[in-house]
Nucleic acid binder design. Structure first.
Lengths: 228, 228, 228, 228
DNA sequence: AATGAATGAGGATTCATTCAT
DNA sequence: GATGAATGAATCCTCATTCAT
């Protein structure tokens, strides 16, 4: 079993034996320059508005390609978009990978903050690409919902897997359901913190928020003598 | 300052001197029977698909009214939808209100599970209405996003307010930022558990999930001797 | 033959045996207060936008009357509008009449400036009413075009009649076609000077423009020795 | 500074370094035959009714093109209409240009009659096209009003410019404001004579009217000994 | 393979007038 | 006479996808 670890939208995603998303051959046959022009202008378009509001016209105008060519390179907008998502994931990995090598050497919840920071660094360095990815979570397109759910499941599975290790090692109480911690972390990342980024909250504050949450998760909110 | 406590989409909302959303006079002038026919068929439509996919045609066909009449009764689909949301909130209150009267008598996190269960009961008893409400969180309509953000803020504020009380009373550790707990609870409800309901997870399981999360939040995941 | 002299849109109109425009009996049966409310709010509406853009909705909302009532009081928007035009003409007459009594005592072109000034005074004193009238000339409604053409013809006829007198008295050269002078004066008023008023040109400047035109008409533009 | 002289709607227009109005590329890409079919049927439509009454349906039915194609070729009806106006101007130029070459050789007011006649010849030879242009002056469409005002200003400026020359040469009295003559001529053309054409007044009569007006403007209406 | 014109269904909204109470 | 709900035709504009060259 090979783990591909993906940091996606400020969340860790481990994709298990994930199938690469391959664009149509006609697109791959284009010269590198043209491929890049199409990809980079598509990123501009998909970062500027949520997927459901993007039209084929937007793409062909931005990429300066004929309408017919679009359908020769891609099946439809979903096809192109999934290609971009794939690309975003690859770029994100560069930021997250170094940290993942340290998995197992220390409690994962301690490592988690660093993963989160790496995700934030990625988001700042490639804001367009980050936004393309974040828009996945807004779409009501059935295919994309399916894809998103799969990514979500993978993300939660990966987090659960790593937390489980900590439980086995003895850091985490045995009666705790680590899947619930995974869910808390995943949703906080994907849903809430995306929004903070959108609002322009300074990095420092965002990181503090995560720290606060980690403290709650680690040590609980109740005083020891509370019989809640 | 009067608090209206609303339970909305499985989240507690304290609305401070909230202005009721009033439909157009032309709609209110209709006889009760017709009003109800329009409302109930609109609920069917808005529960079956997310807001952004609903068309005026869907409504007028379901309600059996002429196109022109729709615009006489409502400004547009947003107008009608907000009216339904308002209605859903009122119905939900019936389930939640009894529990809210007990606020202050015991730690709120203990009460929270009951509030959650009441929300679940509402969702089961009025599944259509529940879904109409849950669709608010999917829309990309600017007006609805604004409305949703306001509701979200109110929900988090309300939860924070109640948790703050517990902190003052001494249940919750003083250095904890209760707003973060509020966010965890709010998002788990609105985002995650909505999905469980959608998947058809049995009530019992859903409630167990909440219990597990509450335990983590209350007592933490780490063993006491862990230096995390 | 009785002459009704009307000063309309800064132009003199003599209406020959003009038939009064009478509103429907149902409207006249209303109490004075209600009649006035309807008229004054209709003036607001028709002064704010050109006739072709006014809807029945605009009127019933401004006048606070039921939709059905509108059709009881008036045949349609044209009916109401013509009623307002009639009213505007009556008000304008108050300003113009005193000057008309002096017709025949001096060359009409000398008197004309005073008539023009009186029209300007009216326009300033009853700006709403003035605008209601000026909008007649923009409409593409067949009925209103017909009405406008009739008014135009009457205006030109009246001016021609008065200028003819001057020609008979010996002021104006015998070979001159006074109808052309009438047309110049009429169109300058109705078309060009309306626009100056709309642009907010100061009264003083507008009057100077008329003076300049009158000098050209009276004495010509060419030097005596020009063989044009 | 280059002067382009345009004869537009029976009025002389000198357009100073005027930018051509260019239709969308998608329209220009059509084969000549199709372009012509669309243009000529649009001319039929826009000559038959004033701009404000023309619908997209009218155009697509007349031109036998699908609704969607219309929006591919033109932004909207204004876009198409301005294209036609541009076209009309070009055609009109053919009639007027020869006369403009003689400007400066004789008093402009003498030349004016010939310009007017040329305009009349154009109007008779291309009655549809002439009417398309004349409808510009009736529209209440904000964009077209702006366009019309610009054309009007250019027309009056051009006439003023040419009359000013005559004043410098010594034909026109120095104290005369030539702008007022320009306004008289412009409005008589655009507003009044358009109507004569519409009524079907014979050319001979129309030309006589202009002659009469020119005599008034040149030599004045008053007898020399009149102290007006 | 490249191109971009062709298509027409589909959605939102407005409005004058009638008609039932 | 007062009222205001009922009606549905009409209009603008968008868009994904196909197809002929």
């Amino acid at each position: 079993m090979i783990f591909f670890l993906h940091y996606y939208d400020t969340s860790v995603i481990i994709m298990l034996e994930r199938g690469e998303y391959v664009p149509k051959k006609t697109f791959l046959n284009l010269n590198r320059q043209k491929q890049e022009r199409i990809i980079s202008s598509s990123i501009s378009v998909f970062s500027a508005k949520p997927f459901d509001h993007v039209t084929v016209k937007d793409i062909v105008e931005a990429a300066q390609i004929p309408r017919g060519s679009f359908y020769q390179y891609f099946d439809d907008l979903v096809d192109l978009y999934l290609h971009l998502i794939e690309y975003a994931q690859r770029v994100k990995m560069v930021y997250v990978e170094p940290i993942l090598t340290r998995v197992g050497q220390e409690p994962f919840l301690n490592l988690y903050l660093e993963l989160f920071e790496a995700g934030l660094t990625f988001a700042k360095a490639h804001f367009d690409l980050y936004q393309v990815g974040s828009h996945l979570f807004l779409s009501q397109n059935p295919q994309l919902i399916k894809h998103m759910k799969a990514i979500e499941q993978q993300g939660i599975d990966a987090l659960s897997y790593l937390l489980k290790k900590d439980q086995e090692t003895g850091f985490i109480k045995t009666h705790i359901d680590v899947v619930m911690i995974a869910k808390i972390l995943y949703h906080l990342n994907v849903r809430d913190l995306i929004y903070e980024l959108y609002k322009g909250t300074p990095d420092q504050e965002i990181i503090q928020m995560v720290e606060k949450i980690l403290i709650i998760i680690k040590y609980g909110a109740y005083k020891e003598d509370t019989n809640g």
